[in-house]
Nucleic acid binder design. Sequence first.
DNA 1: CTTGACCCTGACGCCGCGTGATAGGCCAGA
DNA 2: TCTGGCCTATCACGCGGCGTCAGGGTCAAG
Lengths: 257, 257
Amino acid sequence: MKRYTVSEVARMSGVSVRTLHYYDQIGLLRPAEQGGNGYRYYGREELLRLQQILFYRELKFPLEDVRRILAAPDFDRAEALRAHRARLAEEAENYRRLLQTIDRTLADLNGDGTMSDDDIFYGLNSPRQKEYETWLVDRFGDGMQEKIDESRAKLQAAGGDPKIQAAMGEAQDINADLAAAMKKGLPVDSEETQAAVHRHYQWVTTFWTPDRESYAGLGQLYLEHPDFRKFYDTPGRDGLAAYLAEAMAVYAERTLA
Amino acid sequence: MKRYTVSEVARMSGVSVRTLHYYDQIGLLRPAEQGGNGYRYYGREELLRLQQILFYRELKFPLEDVRRILAAPDFDRAEALRAHRARLAEEAENYRRLLQTIDRTLADLNGDGTMSDDDIFYGLNSPRQKEYETWLVDRFGDGMQEKIDESRAKLQAAGGDPKIQAAMGEAQDINADLAAAMKKGLPVDSEETQAAVHRHYQWVTTFWTPDRESYAGLGQLYLEHPDFRKFYDTPGRDGLAAYLAEAMAVYAERTLA
DNA sequence: CTTGACCCTGACGCCGCGTGATAGGCCAGA
DNA sequence: TCTGGCCTATCACGCGGCGTCAGGGTCAAG
């Protein structure tokens, strides 16, 4: 039975020796045996346990929780993961908001680098209400009014510009493709799904050209805001918004700058 | 000149008294004066400085950096923000990956709540972890991918929150009502149409409570922007977005503040 | 036996405060 | 003027997850 010293385990697992000491100290990972010289020796079993620990650590579980989860084999890991997922999702959302705040602030910075107090606080701590408004303004600009007035006549007079009708039809098509891919159980990074997302991206570029982050953000928006989500999560297509959001994230990461 | 005690400042700004003590201690926010009794008294200027501090704190700047930024008025805040933005973006991206890892893991969880070692490490991605993954693959083989793909179906089959499903269904219903009204040739200010719009307004208030102008603006957005319009202008319902937009404008003017 | 690379324990530091403990100040009512 | 109740102050420990010395023992090769 092979035994590993701290530095060997450290090299294999990527953690520091100090971390192994610490994990021993808090009772998270005890060495298989500790010889008369006080040296820690780990076996295969401990390596496997360490893997699990690192998995949960990566997901930002507190080590104390990790200890509890691993201590009880009958513990409902799925439930723990789901609960934790919710917290992570909040954090992710929070980071997204912070990025927007920075972007707005940068946009509002005057040439001399000063910023007004109004600017600096806009969008902070806003109860979820403001968030939606912010999104709309961010995405579609606030010169909306004029553009709308201007284009209104055309759209309404003709009872529908054929070009626009085509665009709407395209959106329906893409949606159908995505729904089909999801129902087939294809992973979000499958070729077919990504092809559909590519069509979606092309479609989006007719009115907006998002970069990597924005496009992934758009996917989140589809998922998180009912006013978008209603288009995707229709009866018989439950979970499509989530599916699309993930697929868009993958697409963004792989293809966009 | 008005002076505020610690608890007053705390109440106004939302930070704790302890935080004010701490900011004094580290030289981040000194009170305007400290009377013979040792009490801290803050003036308007300090309040404004606190605002700035909280802005940067919210963005997760280390307090030491905040101090430096505020200390030098000629400091390039824009540059600092841009640099910081990059870090935040990385973090945001990281959280997104963690969510995906959790989703994959949940999909792979067996009914009894155990998870296989293959599953448990998939998706870890820090540079150091890459080595670790390699090590894992060496040890456990690389038949992981198929299993992951295969199990994704389960996740999607699981369905979603019934509350959300209900909200999505409501949106569909409202849409059907509106389409019916339009096809009957009812004017936008007809009772039936306005009733449907009212339902729509109620639906919107589950995530946002717009005032008159905002609600009318939302209608225009539905019309102007393909990403919304695609939900309304479906085949056989051409012009519904325009119809709804006008009906919403009427509703807003008549009923909202 | 020496050398150098390992191993140990113990302790402090980090950051942004929360949470006491202990002691004194301020102001209104009796 | 005294009392009580609520302010204020400072000092100090604690959290999490280790990094980073300091000071000393151990192991294996030459």
